[in-house]
Write a protein that binds this DNA or RNA. Sequence first.
DNA 1: TTGTGGTTTGTTATTTTATAACATATCAAA
DNA 2: TTTGATATGTTATAAAATAACAAACCACAA
Lengths: 128, 128
Amino acid sequence: MRKQAAARQADIMDVLKTTKAPMTAYQILGQLQKSEPDIAPPTVYRALTALTEQGRAHKLESLKAFVPCRCDHDKSLPVLTICEDCGLVEEHDGGSLVPKLSSLIAASKFVAKRHIVELHGHCSTCAA
Amino acid sequence: MRKQAAARQADIMDVLKTTKAPMTAYQILGQLQKSEPDIAPPTVYRALTALTEQGRAHKLESLKAFVPCRCDHDKSLPVLTICEDCGLVEEHDGGSLVPKLSSLIAASKFVAKRHIVELHGHCSTCAA
DNA sequence: TTGTGGTTTGTTATTTTATAACATATCAAA
DNA sequence: TTTGATATGTTATAAAATAACAAACCACAA
């Protein structure tokens, strides 16, 4: 019995939401295999690609890991803070950064399609 | 004959400077092996770690690739633009973003140690 | 000199991340 | 139904990164 893409994606969103820390593709795979042992990496990667394109999940490029999008609305520019101690990831709306960013790159005439902003550091709990 | 770390790092900076596009660790390895066939991945990764810590090179997390730092001074916050067509990477000083970024995350009391800002899109040549 | 201890570098092997390539199934329209 | 377009599964492999240990190097003291 095969599942449609939407069902797979929903499964993965459920898995992602079970923890506060980001999960790698292979950690997600491991969870899915508990109920469907035959799932292979491409299935997971394809679903994750769709989810990130839809904005339902974000990839933390610097960790090679994924988090569910934690906001109701579409963020113009997600700013992700990553605690290096506990792994907690929080999402902030970086829309207010856009004007400054645009003026920074205006001279080079670069046309930005995708913005990646990730901050590594310590969350309020771990920094204390 | 083994080389000291500083010499390795200089070799790698030379390799990185031969192209405008970013290079992966294994592309760098391939170049180095032309003159020293026995070099192995850890040698390259160790040198790249040192270079990025010193700020002499940057890692493009979203490409898993490296560029030499192209500025004279230490940037408070490097903003890297990546052309998805030709691979051109340019570096901009994002220092002016810091106040807005700080205020964005102030409520969460997150303490940022490392900022990653990468913009994917098209350079002036490819966008035209 | 000659140890001696700390550090750096080399080596081997493996782990982790990601995707190519092709087979099979599904679905909608003719 | 056939047919064709698309989505999914499967197998295999490629690409990126690091663990673990061995060997070499260097500074300094005896």
